[in-house]
Design a protein around this nucleic acid. Structure first.
Lengths: 279, 279
DNA sequence: TCAAAAGTGTTTTAAGTACACCCATGC
DNA sequence: GCATGGGTGTACTTAAAACACTTTTGA
């Protein structure tokens, strides 16, 4: 199957039937407190040189497609250990002018803390764009993003993945803004908060100072309220009083369709997830 | 990229980098009135010759992966125009001993009327198996089926796809058995029926004889009640009185993640779908 | 006539929805 | 002091869940 080209002395790979190339592309969402953003990279080579595109690249012959997605994400944006889940295959025959390329699209969700790392890394050609004002994109990436957004919109109603767009601790207002930004709807603040708390998926986080001397039965890392709001929030506004954290941890690529779910959960827990996120 | 081998006089396809092969495999569900079944084919060639496997095959270079799935389904089982939706990519490095093969798994749902066609076609090596008693399967197909079942279980709660496992007209009892078979749970018959009817997704079908002389505002094909139950039902039991049909038509492969949904529907309609199928 | 399946309705309980007031902060 | 954002509670409406009896049909 593989030979050395006697002229160029390079390896060649030969098959009886034509083979398409396989790539993994990543639709990477971030949330800056106000707007949903997408991380794009500028193409340095033809085709579509100079255009913006989804981070991604060719699958190596000895890695799974999930490993490809993870590797390309790391190589092109520096991001690691973010939530990532397989979405869908795009396989139009003419979607890449070079050769037949079938791409497996992954969706990644990035926390603001990681978000800042990417934005500040000027060694990278990756840049965050507001999802509503994207530049012209290479290949069929506009279509991919449109479909991925619909998928994200469905997913946050069913699985607790919206937390992956927030820091480990967050206010309920921040959570609500994520939902509103993704779905394009507005929710009643009081109903949203009640449902979020009643879901049982959140635990209040008490600041270190408040922790002392009071009954503190939370098993999560306590964190100073003040410190979080020193330099991160784009619009400081008013300091929120109540911070929460998400109970389950779900990060990294694992190839499951729905990352945020463990099938061993009780039925009650699964129902509460659904009810919480379907406003 | 493609040359003629001077020894064998056959075409060869050469690439600078190794390319994996791409296949489409179909997990095809059927429902015989009692049990959920899966359609398998017996492998006639190595590897895994003689074992049972999911219908599927290699993508041609000039077809989308959806077209591959559709073509293989037709070639290997004779089925056409069934509900089919893309599920997930499986890409373990060693999942096929011949070469590196990445497979895109599709899920298909087959109506009993089509079901009978396949079962009676002895020119085909396809056979229906009860999902709970499958034979040993080739490659990683057992793992694929396990994951696809979980996907189906989630999908029927969210989208009205269970109808695709029933004939155009069906009783509410049949619908309930589909849900119970897939989810493994039992539902209260009265609550199930009320929710199903209230969802607005079903229309009662009146038999031809009853149609005459009475107010018949249904726009669906009227069908004799008696004829449907002549030879099809495995356990005749008691003849149901009320038959229904599903309002929307969703068949064929189209590549959307969720086949049964049109994004232009009103929010109200979408909510009712969700509520109906989450028992 | 008996067993099995299908038709029907009510009550209780939980959740969704709509809505108003007060408080703290920063400008 | 005023606009903004955040905290809290209640009444109303709707849907879910639990539950029993009757009727039809085939064996």
């Amino acid at each position: 199957m593989c030979y050395i080209d006697t002229k160029t002395m390079k390896m060649e790979y030969t098959y009886k039937y034509p083979h398409a190339a396989i790539t993994a592309d990543c639709v990477i969402y971030g949330f800056d407190g106000e707007r949903l953003k997408i991380l794009l990279v500028e193409r340095g080579v033809e085709p579509c040189k100079g255009m913006w595109a989804l981070p991604g690249g060719f699958m190596k012959i000895d890695e799974t497609i999930e490993e490809t997605a993870k590797r390309e994400l790391s190589e092109e944006t520096g991001l690691r250990n973010v939530f990532m889940t397989q979405f869908k295959v795009f396989s139009k025959v003419d979607r890449d002018p070079r050769e037949r390329v079938v791409t497996v699209v992954f969706m990644a969700l990035v926390r603001p803390s990681d978000y800042m790392l990417v934005a500040g890394d000027d060694a990278s050609n990756a840049l965050w764009f507001e999802e509503r004002f994207l530049p012209p994109l290479a290949f069929d990436h506009e279509e991919i993003i449109a479909e991925t957004h619909r998928y994200l919109e469905e997913l946050i109603r069913l699985k607790p993945v919206a937390f992956e767009l927030l820091n480990k601790t967050f206010s309920l207002g921040e959570l609500q803004r994520v939902y509103e930004e993704i779905t394009g709807k507005n929710y009643d603040r009081r109903n949203f908060q009640r449902k979020a708390v009643q879901s049982g998926l959140l635990t209040p986080v008490v600041s270190k100072s408040e922790c002392r001397g009071m009954e503190c039965d939370c098993d999560v890392v306590c964190e100073s309220v003040g410190s979080r709001y020193s330099a991160k929030r784009p619009k400081p506004g008013r300091k929120p009083n109540r911070l929460f954290t998400f109970l389950k941890k779900n990060s990294g690529v694992d190839g499951k369709k729905f990352e945020g779910e463990s099938r061993n959960d009780s039925e009650e827990s699964d129902a509460s997830i659904k009810d919480l996120f379907d406003f």
